[in-house]
Each structure stands twice: as structure tokens, then as C-alpha cells.
Amino acid sequence: MKKKTPWPYVFFWVLISFLTLFPIYWLFVISVTPSFELFSTPSVILQHVDWQNYTEVIGNPTLRGYMMNSLLISSGNAILTTTFGFFACYALSRFNLSGKESIFFWTITNRMAPPAVFLLPLFLLLTKVYRIEGFTLLDTRIGMILVYCTFNLPFAIWTLRPTVDGIPKELDEAAFVDGASPWKVITEVVFPLCRPGLAVTLILTWVFAWNEYLLAATLTNFNARTLTTGLSEYVTTTGTAWGIMAAISIFTLIPALIVFSVVQRHIVAGLTFGAVKG
């Protein structure tokens, strides 16, 4: 190939980056524009910054509750799926279980199913079948944590499996010879070595749970509503609180952006079912 000057490429990528970033910037612009200025001529350049929408969101006890729910549900789900996924991977890696490859593939199919199809059956099961007297899992945080396992647990299993497989078997066998219990081997020998992989899985499952909307919108009413569903409550047919909506969006975006900077290179592998190593 001919040696070309790199500047056209830089220019091209500046343009692409602009196209990528501008919509996010626009979200920010709307969020710091007071509502009475919104309907004047849209302007790309910020005249002044008004944090009123943000203070309104933080000052709203309902939205604070939603934020808390989002935080608790996604953290609970991430910890639960990573723990279960780690145990499952250890079992798949170290034990000679019959049909374990079928089990592995079966867990993955759980993630490929379209969530819209499961809205109705999950709703019916949660309201009519999974109930003890008056208590149902509908609109509870623990219910949402368990429901999110359907897509996060398969993800955790297939991202963790190579991690666990990569820990040499000789290490835990040596520990067994020294008389350690199986539980002790997992927690004190295998777990410390798996930490980097576990951290990536924990972070990505956390983001997926945080970002989820559809299931949260149908399976919660008030008590366990998450921030993403709170966002859609501000879009009504009678009129939309644009500034508030933008501010909630920014709040939902921030944790994901922080996470993004940490695990950027693992995102592609995670989103492509591991078919492409990022």
C-alpha cells in the first residue's frame, strides 16, 4: 500500500466522532436549558447553564426512590449472577457431570430469546403462580433481581467459563491433597485467581441490569420501579417535560459512562456472545 499522509484520516475520524458525540451533547444542552427557552430557536452553542432540571430531579422523592431501586436491583443482580455464574463455571470446569455441555448451551439459549415474548408469561407467573398467600414477586426488588437473571446469568456463565478453565487444575488438586474442603478450595484458591474476570463480569452484568427497561416497565408498579421506567413516565401524550426527561437520561447515563471507561475493551466481546474477541 502507498504511504499516505495521515491527516485526511484524522479529519475523517474527527467528523465521525462529532457525529457520535453530538446527540449526547444535545441531550446535555436540553437538560441545562430552562423550559421557557426550549421552544425558541434551537441553538447548538450553550448560552448559559441552568442546573434547575437536575435539582428538580434530585429533589423529587419519587425519582430518588427509583434511583435507589435501580441501584439496589442492578447491584443485587450483578452480585447474584456473578456468584451463581462463578459456581456454575467451576462445576462445569472441574467436575465430570453428565450432559454438562448441553447444560452450558441451554443456559446460553436463555439469553437469545426476545424479552418481549416473555413479558406476558412472566407477568402471569409472577402474579398468579409464584405466590404464597398474598405475597407475590410482582413489583418487588427481589423479583426484579431474579427476573434479570434470565439474561445476565447466561452472560456471566459464558464470560466466566474461560476464566475458570484458565486456572490450572493442579492448583486445586494440590489444595485437596493438603486436606482443604471443596468450599475452601473455591473461596481461597480459585476465587483470588479469578478476580480480574469476575470484576469484568460483575461490571458488565451491572450495566445490563441498570440499562434494562422493558421487563421493569411491565413487572413493577411503584415499589420497585427503576430509573429507566421513571424516564418514560415523563413522556405523556398531553405533554412531555423535556428538560426533566433529559436530566433523568443524563443521570441514567453517568454510571454507564464511568463503567465504559473501565471495561471498554470487553464490551464488544460481551455484546457479540463472545463470537468476536474485542
Binding site: 455441555e101 448441553s102 448451551f105 446460553i108 459464558w158 464470560t159 467459563r161 474461560p162 476464566t163 484458565g166 486456572i167 490450572p168 479469578c194 480480574p196 474476570g197 469484568v200 470487553h266 466481546a269 460481551g270 456472545f273 463472545g274 463470537a275 474477541k277
Partner: peptide
């Protein structure tokens, strides 16, 4: 061990035939 540690966070290519169950 060191070489194995490098790959620990690489996911399995489930579309790769080598990983398909026989």
C-alpha cells in the same frame, strides 16, 4: 501458567466448531 493467565478473560467463541459438543 503465565500464558493461561493472559487468556482468562477471553470468552469462548460459541460459533467456533471446535467448541461445539460432539
Amino acid at each position: 501458567m503465565a500464558s493461561k493467565m493472559e487468556n482468562i478473560d477471553k470468552p469462548i467463541d460459541i460459533l467456533d466448531d471446535a467448541n461445539a459438543p460432539p
